[in-house]
Every structure is written in structure tokens, then in C-alpha cells.
Design a binder for these strands. Structure first.
Lengths: 145, 145
DNA sequence: ACCACTTTCTTCCACTTCTTTCCACTAAGA
DNA sequence: TCTTAGTGGAAAGAAGTGGAAGAAAGTGGT
């Protein structure tokens, strides 16, 4: 389970420093390979290879549909297999770097099974624009929040 | 069950001293790990790790929804796993320290299953601005209040 | 078609900065 | 006075960063 925000940076070469905590977990649970992609072109999603393969398997079994084709189209357009080096850095494909403006300060968010990489300022602005309301929380119906 | 207000301080390094009473309860009921996060960026919420995991599980089972996505986006943006040291202090992430102005005197409030950490003066002002009304209390439908 | 040169990519080393942990002192309450 | 809570700070270790050297891929010319 990945959780929380680990602020980090993308250097001028386009390398993302995977925060040490996430790196440790990935090292022990998965290999150094990831599938980096995006569903909206606005922020990158980083799946440990094994997780992505699990999703692919589930999709392969699903009946053919427009939604499936669309999903494959988008995720494979932005997608690429990337590998962490010994220093815990990985090269973000140029296309994603441009579309998701991944340079300088970025937020790496744990989203349970995968990680989200977002431009910090943009993500912040998006949260401010669309805040979490009491009604949202009530809608979840979870006790003790 | 956490209850009451235990005023404490955040030092210049951003370390929150967990009041001894809360520390004792946490030590016996839970481990030293917490998930610290925020829903509005204005005050921090401190969940014993086990409590937070319970919420995560409940969320994982809930059907996909906008409210759920928003909730994960916000809580993981502000969130971080933190650990108390032997002296009962824990480091508040920079982002939260800034947004929620957690420095100097703060109030630690027991909110049943979790703790709230708020800038004392700000919290006071907010209560004054938005007081508890008879209508609020009636809406609870609890006998004997 | 092959060779050589150029350019880009990748990996690894070494330095710097920040974080974390732990020790010791101060203050307050019993 | 003794014990427990709270505070500050220094030292050791870990994390982050830049860059240089080696490898690989691409390009052009003979």
C-alpha cells in the first residue's frame, strides 16, 4: 500500500528521484521496473511492473469494448517501461514531461497500488479549486473520518 | 477514545511534542506510527496507523466515485506516515506546517478515533466565527445533551 | 555494405546537504 | 527531593545531487 506525499524533484535531464521511502518498499516488494503512463495527460502514474501486468491480464480477459480500446489507446500512448538506477532515479519520457509539466518540484503521491507524479504547483491549484467538502465525506459513508 | 484539549508546542525544527497523556494511550493501544494528514489544509489530523488502515480498507471496498477520488487526492497530498521518537515527539511535514501554520502553541484535540492538531489562535477564531447552534445540537438526535 | 565518426543515452562515483537519532539539561509536579 | 515531562542541540548516518566516463545508437561517407 503506497500512501502519503513525498515531495521530490525532476532534474534538468528529466530524471525523477524516487523518494527513499517509496524506493525501499519497491525494492523489497517489486523489481526496479515500472510502467509509467497517464490517463489524462495531466499527471503521470507509476505502476510497479507486476501491478501493471495484473491490470493487463484483467483487461485481456474482459470482453472487447469501446472503453477498453480507449483505455489501451491512452495508456499506451503515454506509457513506457522505465527502470530505476542504483541511486533511485528514473527517466521520465519526454512526452509526459511536457504534457504533465514534470520539471522541478513535483509531488509523488501514494495511491494505494500505484504512485502519482504531479507538478506540485498545479496539483495544489487543482485542490484549491475543487476542495473536499463535508458532503463529499458524508457520501463516503465511512465511520470515524 | 481520545477526548479533550491538550495544549502543546511545535519547536523550530517542526517537531510536535505529543502530550504525555495521549502518548501513554497511544503506546498501549497502538504503535508509534501515525498517519498525519489534512482534509482542508487548515489543520492537521493525526490517525494512529491502525485507524487509518481501517479507513483505507473501507474505502478500497467502496465503489469508485468522484468523492472517493477527491478524498484520496487530498489526504494523500497532505499525508505522510510519521513516527514518534522515544521522547514522544513527531516531525510534522513541512507542507502541513506551512499551510496549517503549525508552529509555537498548538491545540491537540481528541476527536474520538483520531487527534486534531491546530494552531491555537486560529482555531479559537474559527470557533468564534462559526459557533455551535441549538439547531446543530438538535440535528444530532442524541438524548441528554 | 561496411567503417568511422558524432552524438545521445546510461550508469556510476563522489560530494554536499539534510534528516534522524540520541544524549543531556531544565523545569515542573508529586 | 525525587521522578516524570519537556526542550535543545550535536553527531552520525542517510538521502539527494551533479557531473564525468563509458557504452550504445545513429548518421554519413566512401
Amino acid at each position: 500500500m503506497f500512501r502519503g506525499n513525498h515531495p521530490t524533484r525532476v532534474d534538468e535531464k528529466g530524471r525523477l528521484k524516487v523518494p527513499a521511502e517509496f524506493k525501499r518498499r519497491v525494492d523489497e516488494l517489486y523489481g526496479p521496473q515500472f510502467f509509467i503512463t497517464s490517463k489524462d495527460g495531466k499527471r503521470a502514474e507509476l505502476y510497479p511492473m507486476k501491478e501493471w501486468e495484473r491490470i493487463e491480464d484483467a483487461l485481456a480477459k474482459a470482453p472487447s469494448s469501446g472503453a477498453k480500446k480507449k483505455f489501451l489507446d491512452v495508456t499506451n500512448y503515454y506509457g513506457q517501461v522505465v527502470e530505476m538506477d542504483a541511486q533511485g532515479r528514473l527517466l521520465i519520457p519526454q512526452l509526459l514531461r511536457e504534457d504533465a509539466t514534470l520539471a522541478g518540484d513535483v509531488a509523488v503521491l501514494g495511491m494505494q497500488t500505484y504512485l502519482v507524479v504531479a507538478n506540485d504547483a498545479k496539483h495544489r491549484a487543482q485542490l484549491a479549486e475543487n476542495p473536499l467538502t463535508d458532503a463529499d465525506i458524508d457520501a463516503l459513508g465511512v465511520v470515524g473520518i
